[in-house]
Amino acid sequence: MEHLGLWVAAFLTLGIYSFLYRDNPWYKLSEAIFIGISAGYWVVTLFWDNFYGKFWVGHGEDPWLWVGAVLGFLMLLRLVPKIGWISRWPLSFIVGATAGLWMMNYFSSNIMLQVKDTIMPLFGSGYTASAYDIVGNIVVAVGTFSGLVYFFFSKEHKGAFGATAKVGIWFIMITFGASFGYTVMSRMSLLIGRMDFLFSDWLGLIK
């Protein structure tokens, strides 16, 4: 049985890799299996975790959970063409909740915290910083400032303002480069992981 599992896993692994050559029946087969099995996996997990685990078990103690169930039910009214418009209620509920919840979250974590962290002495506490740190600090302050200038919508990027925005986009590009370079290595290790499966677990060529 374990042996069979290994062969299935290897068959599917190679099927997905065959996509790199071109679309082909092997990939289509792997894709069809992937979609069917994973969609089924999610329904089952959602049912047991969310419906059974959160609603069914909890609704006696917390009658508020009925609000979720009723909204969920209203969602299904889409299937009845005449009153399908009622399904916009749960939808607008979700949109309102998402907007309200995230607005304040982003407010504190993205705006307040970042602004606060940028306020720091350029020359270190009591002028103790090395030249290296001073350059770094100045770069952080200037970069954050000019980056914000780049995002300004209500002013044309011209003259001194445009020049600052230009500096801003340079910083943003360096940031993107840094994340790009940082990620390349970890992506390579994913490939190594799969090769390790094929050559050692499945074929047993590498011990």
């Binding site: 940028t118 306020i119 002495p121 914000l148 200038v149």
Partner: peptide
């Protein structure tokens, strides 16, 4: 446009804050 006001506030605070803390130190 309103969003830009937020950006302007952030920029002013950053400049004033960095200036004040650097001079203060």
């Amino acid at each position: 446009k309103g969003q830009d006001i937020g950006k302007a506030i952030a920029m002013v605070v950053i400049v004033a804050g960095v200036f004040a803390i650097t001079i203060g130190e």
